[in-house]
């Protein structure tokens, strides 16, 4: 009896501090807990992305040339004034639009078709899915080099195939033709980017309830009508967000161009992102490069906000 009693008191005594600790932590932890979870990411992003961004933006108003010891002073908006009259920059802007939307159109269309094909059950689907997603895992500069190699008539098969198809009179390297050069990196980019759209769209497709198609079929909808009235509306949110994200990524994505053409020939493949690279690391003019980057950032922000506003307007019109 006695022993049992002392055990219970000991247990109660042991229990008390636990409850005390609870008292202090509950309110506070209720408020602080989410921030605690977010803090590592937030610290990293602020330290490695936001602070450098602010620093980088400040460079846009300074004269920073690596090899010039007298540089470093404030130049106000001089860089931006130069920018307005910089033909190379204006050409790069046009090329960026061309590069971005050319890549995006094919990546998206082919990615959607691939997702639709993979959404059917067929023999060997798992293997096929693994294989067609593979290009996404290939390091971009390696695929750039490889594609440059394949476009070269000496060591690559592509020009010979184009000739056989009657697209070319004699095999030549499109990467050295100012009118066609942009197609080189675009094709490489399409190859690299299809899996991204296919993966996200396939995931969205698989989340559409099967009953909807059954109901539509019973209502007499043809396959095409089902696609338009069920598939597309369900995919719309995914399409909107992935298109926006990819637009921004591709516009910023200079690796393939730097590796394959380095902006040439005659600046015909120079996009803004690769122009920044050239200014910063070939001419070592960080001030001017930062000014260009700032303009690009503003343009992309404006684009993103425009898309979001458009989407909001459309969803409001729906409801």
């Amino acid at each position: 009896m006695d022993g049992g009693k002392s055990v219970t008191t000991a247990m109660q005594a042991g229990k008390l501090p636990v409850e005390r600790r609870g008292v202090i932590s509950r309110r506070l932890s209720g408020i602080l807990e989410p921030y605690l979870y977010v803090s590592p990411a937030l610290i990293l992003i602020i330290a490695v992305m936001l602070m450098p961004l602010v620093l980088g933006l400040s460079y846009a108003f300074r004269d920073i040339r690596i090899l010039n010891p007298f540089s470093g002073g404030f130049v106000g908006t001089a860089h931006f004034q130069t920018l307005i009259t910089d033909d190379a920059f204006l050409g790069a802007l046009v090329n960026t639009a061309w590069w971005t939307f050319g890549s995006l159109l094919f990546q998206f269309t082919l990615g959607l078709i691939l997702a639709l094909l993979l959404n059917r059950d067929f023999l060997g689907r798992r293997l096929v899915q693994a294989l067609v997603f593979l290009p996404w895992a290939v390091p971009t500069f390696l695929s750039g080099l490889n594609w440059a190699w394949m476009f070269n008539p000496v060591v690559g098969p592509l020009p010979h195939w184009f000739t056989a198809l009657g697209l070319m009179e004699t095999p030549f390297n499109i990467l050295s033709d100012p009118d066609l050069a942009m197609w080189g990196p675009i094709v490489a980019n399409i190859w690299f980017g299809i899996p991204f759209f296919a993966i996200t769209l396939l995931a969205a497709l698989q989340s559409i309830p099967k009953e909807l198609y059954e109901a539509a079929a019973i209502d007499g909808a043809t396959t095409r009508q089902q696609f338009i009235s069920i598939t597309l509306p369900f995919l719309a949110p995914t399409i909107a967000i992935t298109l926006m994200l990819r637009t921004i990524w591709i516009a910023n994505f200079a690796d393939l161009i730097v590796v394959m053409t380095n902006g040439g020939p005659a600046d015909s493949t120079q996009i803004v992102a690769s122009y920044i690279f050239t200014q910063a690391f070939r001419r070592l003019d960080f001030g001017y490069a930062s000014a260009i980057a700032a303009v690009l950032l503003v343009l992309l922000l404006a684009y993103a906000l425009g898309v979001i506003a458009l989407r909001r307007a459309m969803t409001h019109a729906d409801s």
């Binding site: 636990v18 409850e19 609870g22 008292v23 932590s25 509950r26 309110r27």
Partner: peptide, 11 residues
């Protein structure tokens, strides 16, 4: 008999 307002579910 114990006020539990400030206790975690587990306690």
């Amino acid at each position: 008999g114990t006020v539990v307002n400030e206790l975690q579910p587990k306690d």
